[in-house]
Design a protein around this nucleic acid. Sequence first.
DNA 1: AGCACGATTAACT
DNA 2: GTTAATCGTGCTC
Length: 196
Amino acid sequence: MTAPLPESFYRRNTVEVARSLLGMRLVRMLGGLRLSGLITEAEAYRGEEDLACHARAGRTPRNAVMYGPPGRAYVYFTYGMHWMLNCVTEEEGFPAAVLLRAVWVDEGREVVAARRPKALPEHWTDGPAKLCQAFQIDRRLNGAALTGPLDGLWIEAGPGFPDEQVSIGARVGLGGTPEPWLSMPWRFKVKRPPLS
DNA sequence: AGCACGATTAACT
DNA sequence: GTTAATCGTGCTC
């Protein structure tokens, strides 16, 4: 039996946490069933100076969770229809988080198949909004503690991925974000998803 | 009170 | 490659 990753895992430099999250296991309890997937893509968003980060304009009602203690879920709504899941990082008071962009579904594949009826398995959870749809993650989980089972969403230790299987690059979808933030190598992606 | 836009996705041409 | 979908948020008037 594997325990949720402790708060100390998240109370570190956000870029390190983003890299470390690859190969960890995202777990969601849904209707008594356990869904899980290995994290295969993550991006770091770090501080008010990072002009790509939601905290760039200071604290607001929307981004308040990022200023709170590490190990919480920051879930936000965008494009009028999509939810995104982040893990809050670093010391309380410093706004930072890691966006989970993709997982490879392991446990609960039947449930995910039903929640993503029009998608092929390789596209069930290969985007940040897709994984939220697959795991039923929305506003209700904003602020949830990922360090325990109470909120039905947590992250456990997993096999990880060696550096040879990880590509590092610029974050995506940042629109007109100025340099150097646009090109910061804060996106971590597994080159090849693990095969079943 | 009004408005432009977004850490995207799916369905087009 | 292009674009509609769809609405909360934060900024301007």
